[in-house]
């Protein structure tokens, strides 16, 4: 079936719109319900992200490696907002960076996740703090408004 024909079906168009709005996620308010991120954590996380993550996920959180997803835009919407944050956090602390998980300490993981959340629209607070364990992340929810 020609691609254009597929795209012209009603369902295809509707879902394309959904994707397009997801690409604007960073411009919308993203709430971290049941938790917070700290301003200092975000600043430290930006540096730690460049050192440990950008090699595959890109300096601008757009992936540069086919095994690594984007961490912004529609991928953030589909793969972070729609899944339990605890699950995503657990995956990060147990598998990232590939082959180097033992090299990163728990607070650095928390800072990196705080940075990713902030990049995608979660507001940082002076007294905010993103936790270090999946158990503490479990009550938290990401919501786009």
């Amino acid at each position: 079936m020609p691609i254009r024909h597929i795209l012209q079906t009603t369902g295809g168009l509707m879902l394309l719109c959904a994707v397009a709005s997801g690409a604007q996620a960073a411009d919308k308010v993203v709430l971290l319900q049941g938790g917070s991120i700290g301003t200092a954590q975000v600043a430290a996380g930006a540096e730690a992200y460049l050192d440990n993550c950008a090699g595959c996920h890109g300096e601008d959180l757009r992936s540069v490696n086919s095994n690594a997803p984007d961490l912004r835009g529609p991928t953030f919407q589909y793969s972070w907002v729609t899944k339990p944050l605890e699950e995503t956090f657990h995956k990060i602390i147990t598998t990232m960076p590939p082959g180097m998980t033992g090299e990163i300490d728990p607070e650095t993981y928390a800072q990196i996740v705080a940075y990713i959340l902030n990049f995608n629209g979660v507001e940082a607070q002076e007294d905010g703090r993103f936790p270090q364990t999946a158990e503490e992340v479990a009550p938290m929810d990401l919501v786009i408004q």
Partner: peptide, 17 residues
């Protein structure tokens, strides 16, 4: 999903799994 069809754009286009 869609990707940016420009130099430096692209990517794998997979948004979720």
């Amino acid at each position: 999903g869609e990707v940016e069809m420009v130099e430096g754009g692209g990517g794998n286009g997979k948004f979720a799994e």
